[in-house]
Design a protein around this nucleic acid. Structure first.
Lengths: 327, 327
DNA sequence: TTGAAAGCGGTACCAA
DNA sequence: TTGGTACCGCTTTCAA
């Protein structure tokens, strides 16, 4: 059996409510008594029963993060950052890699104080049944979202990328991305690209629009290969994700195309790893730290005051230059 | 305020102990009563208070998994498998990406029924303070391990790889791995390679031993490049991890070296992804499913009977042929 | 400054 | 088949 405050009370010769106070460092206990109690508690190896505490206090100081697809690398950086951010508030984070509903149920059982979900598909954010009594923040594309969401201006990110290249003098710009319509984030990026191209009177067609059909580096690699062997000769490439961009670089190297001399490249995803690729890449996107801070901040606000968080918050992307583009 | 069994009892006009029984599907409640109670519970949107249940039952049906370095891809497959395996026992899994000690403390607070840790460094398994009242299984290299550990016969894996190649007629076999001495798993692989080579009277020296200095694909890529441009001309390569092997393939392709015609390649890590690489790779290692099953099985045994699990269990690797080797 | 006692939301045993 | 009740371990008034 575990040590309880009653055991301590017995040995200390005080009531157990006094022990409780002492352990919580209350002002109402005489210092000597407190010391004595603390000492005994230590000797006995006392560990508070969290379930009992919770039953009374209704606080767990824990955030649950739902992350059903751990195999996608880019997000792991964000998760790590979020974890750090949460610690700053002296909260803990637990992770579940089960489907959203299952995870929510589990977190509910554990009575976490708050939850964070990443958008998985269209329904993640709009499914009515996912409303929760527990403060929850989602990260994904705003729409009919049931939960308050932290969104990113994906369109603008791509617009900025095109604009950046255009200003450098490029007009033959290709976009390599995943156009599977289930992923709204990818769709948004695509729209942004289209919009920018149109504005600059540049064509968007089957030639400069390359569907990688997936988000792994290999998809980007194959897509780029195909592009390079087509008749269209772009002078600049935009990769729609970190992994895809890494595939692009590989393809270019194999073909002995030098970045940025022969080809300018910009990648989406503003994570530090962009700078440690084979060829460091100029990238566009919301800096991952900012995103983590915003998510955690919003959640904490939501926990303290249910009505204090906007239903949609959109983050502005930035360009980080790493010399992978030239005129 | 949340709905409690007392609320239900009031509305149903029964005592709350009856409600408790009904909700737990006890035989001792008349079906009609049960139905009525269940119906009311549903209407009220009743959700049991887990903390209260736990306070009494002392069971959480939850396993905590400590995984401080989520950024390493290979393990994510194992984690996913473990999660699946745990579900089969109708347990849930929660994950912590904090340092081992911090994670243990948190899991303890949540009173998980069991824990799983992956070896991070020498101390993870030997640190006395990590003994825990909660049943815990570690995965890593056995040694002075405090916790029961599921180990893999890394040496034999590499031995098998060399043997396999040798039998095919290769004698110029190079090993590309990470020799940083902090990672005991890597060290073990290296030893196995050495041992096998010695047995077949093949030399081990600076030429065929390539230190990638890291575990990312890029490390393997650079190392292979270097090797290919050296005077030593191997006919077979062994990659010490999935990522490194993927770098090897890539280097070979760039140099127009065909697998397996011009070069035989075996990779460590027995995960399905080995078959979906640019060039599917013959690989050696403990099949990841087996590993997951063993880990979870052992943990469940440990939970049910503290003394039933051997202090060290070593899994035997297997070779999966995928036509990346020839004579 | 300390203690007594009333819960928190359940489970489980015993009595009715 | 149901109800009464004693806990589980702790926090938090309220009295002493």
């Amino acid at each position: 059996m575990n040590v309880t405050i009653k055991d301590i009370a017995n040995l200390a010769g005080v009531s157990y409510s006094t022990v409780s106070k002492a352990l919580n460092d209350s002002e109402l206990v005489k210092p000597e008594t407190k010391d004595k109690i603390l000492k005994i508690a230590k000797e006995l190896g006392y560990e508070p029963n969290f379930a009992a505490q919770r039953l009374v206090s209704k606080q767990t100081k824990t955030i649950g993060l739902v992350w059903p697809s751990i195999e996608r690398a880019t997000l792991s950086t964000l998760v790590t950052k979020i974890n750090e951010e949460i610690s700053k508030y002296s909260y803990s984070m637990i992770l579940s890699i089960n489907p959203v509903k299952t995870s929510f149920d589990m977190f509910k059982r554990f009575q976490v104080d708050g939850m964070i979900v990443f958008e998985e598909n269209d329904e993640t954010l709009t499914d009515q049944s996912l409303t929760s009594s527990i403060p929850t923040i989602a990260h994904g594309v705003a729409g009919n979202n049931v939960l308050p969401v932290i969104d990113v201006n994906w369109q603008q990110a791509m617009y900025d990328a095109v604009n950046y290249l255009y200003k450098l003098g490029h007009s033959k710009i290709a976009f390599i991305g995943d156009f599977s319509p289930v992923d709204r984030r990818q769709m948004e990026k695509f729209k942004g690209f289209q919009k920018a191209m149109k504005e600059f009177n540049l064509p968007v067609n089957a030639e400069n629009l390359v569907n990688a059909g997936g988000l792994d580096w290999y998809d980007g690699y194959v897509a780029t290969k195909k592009l390079l062997h087509s008749t269209y000769k772009p002078t600049a490439l935009i990769g729609s994700s970190y992994d895809i961009s890494s595939g692009i670089i590989r393809s270019l190297r194999e073909e002995n195309i030098i970045i940025p001399k022969d080809m300018s490249v910009i990648g989406y995803d503003n994570i530090p790893q962009m700078g440690t690729l084979e060829t460091p890449l100029t990238s566009v996107g919301v800096p991952i730290d900012q995103l983590a801070v915003k998510i955690v901040d919003s959640l904490m606000k939501l926990i303290n005051d249910k009505s204090s968080v906007p239903h949609v918050q959109i983050m502005t992307p930035e360009i980080v230059e790493r010399a992978s583009c030239s005129k």
